[in-house]
């Protein structure tokens, strides 16, 4: 009860200082929020590209339907494979005529269809890695009636290299911004501790327990962190709305991320406060 009263009293006595602390925490976490928004949208964009990753297996002419059916059954046994689609010679020609008008003109009167029938193999999300693709391709190529199996090797390798760089960058920069946020919260709370140094001195003078001295500061730190987290969420949402309305269509981060952000703000506030008051109590 004392901790709650004192934390509230601290706000009443120095509302500007408390607002500044929460504001600094909010701005630091806002940067993390913007970063999360960018990371999340980058992830969505990469996943959208990854969805287009598929293996196309070209079947030799005169292959029996029973062999193709067996292939389709066996390839579906791979856990990584989500779906297969047989493209007949006619389907391939129709698609070519639709997508490439010049191609259509060339074979319009011809009775010979030069295109082979093929099977498009889609992979499950999370299994569209170069290693998995290579494994499925190798399995497909082991069938004698398979003329070739293609998947845009160079393109997939580049995509995954980009993904790895993106993951490493977001992890490192996210951790750096989180540390900056923690340092800013720590600095703000050291100011709060300094502003109440006389009270702390008197508390120690008359024999208040350390836990009793710490508790209002821990609560204040937690509240400043949580308030900053809420402020940062609001600012991030405002930025999201602004970007969505005036610049480009982006997705809002999952609410679990917002929850993690608020919890992180609360923890940063509490831990930074604990460190600040611990250091101060060691000195007086």
């Amino acid at each position: 009860m004392y901790a709650i009263r004192e934390a509230a009293a601290a706000f009443r006595r120095a509302p500007i200082l408390t607002a500044l602390s929460a504001g600094m925490v909010g701005l630091a976490l806002y940067v993390v929020g913007l970063f999360s928004l960018a990371t999340y949208n980058l992830r969505i964009a990469l996943e959208a590209i990854e969805e287009r990753v598929e293996i196309v297996v070209y079947i030799r002419d005169n292959t029996r339907q029973s062999e193709i059916d067996l292939f389709l059954t066996e390839i579906m046994d791979f856990q990584e494979v989500s779906n297969t689609k047989l493209i007949s010679k006619m389907d391939a020609l129709e698609r070519a005529q639709r997508d490439l008008p010049e191609f259509g003109q060339l074979f319009l009167d011809s009775e010979v269809n030069p295109l082979p029938q093929s099977i498009e193999i889609a992979l499950n999300p999370g299994n569209r890695t170069p290693e998995t693709i290579a494994k499925v391709v190798k399995a497909a190529q082991s069938y004698t009636f398979v003329e070739d199996a293609l998947y845009g090797e160079e393109w997939v390798d580049r995509l995954f290299a980009l993904r790895k760089i993106g993951l490493a960058t977001t992890t490192a920069a996210g951790a750096a911004f989180a540390m900056v946020a923690a340092l800013i919260i720590g600095a703000a709370l050291r100011i709060a501790v300094f502003a109440r140094r006389e009270e702390i001195y008197v508390m120690r003078l008359v024999g208040a327990r350390n836990g009793f001295i710490r508790s209002p500061f821990l609560l204040e730190g937690a509240l400043a962190g949580l308030t900053g987290g809420i402020l940062a969420s609001g600012l991030t949402y405002g930025s999201y709305r602004g970007v969505s309305t005036y610049m480009l269509d982006v997705a809002w981060i999952p609410f679990s991320w917002v929850g993690i952000g608020l919890t992180a703000g609360l923890l940063f506030g509490t831990i930074s406060s604990a460190v600040a008051i611990h250091r101060h109590l060691k000195k007086v």
């Binding site: 008359v206 208040a208 009793f212």
Partner: peptide
């Protein structure tokens, strides 16, 4: 108990509040 030449009372608080503070923080 300890007292000093410069009193070391909490500024901005009344006499009663200064004494009450010591009582409150010691339970």
């Amino acid at each position: 108990g300890m007292v000093f030449q410069d009193f070391r009372l909490l500024p901005g608080r009344t006499a009663l509040e200064n004494v009450a503070f010591a009582l409150e923080v010691t339970g």
